[in-house]
Design a binder for these strands. Sequence first.
DNA 1: CAGGTGATTGTTGGC
DNA 2: GCCAACAATCACCTG
Length: 106
Amino acid sequence: MPKQATTKTKRATKGRDGGKKKKDPNAPKRGLSAYMFFANEKRDTVREENPGIAFGQVGKMLGEKWKALNDVERQPYEAKAKADKERYDREKASYNAAGDDEEDEE
DNA sequence: CAGGTGATTGTTGGC
DNA sequence: GCCAACAATCACCTG
């Protein structure tokens, strides 16, 4: 059970190499999350039911509503999440190939 | 082989 | 442009 620090933007328990890590040159950003797709649809819905509500509310509502759904309802979102992951897999492949044969700057 | 770690994704809204 | 709760993710690298 790793550390779960609720986002925090710092999303990092600690420096892995002690502080030396240059991410990836191509950074094949992973795929989105089911929540992302869900938020995309609910974003307008939630905001519609809560006109003028601040993000703090929307965010929380989304989260609680998100779980309010059943696996079946999440399916379309998970499906997208998975599809997005596949997308990432592709970038990763390119990223792998790029660093395996070609190198630009550094 | 197993572990956990970090990086990322998107929403809104204000400065 | 960034940051914040909210949630998932899950591929990545290492020992």
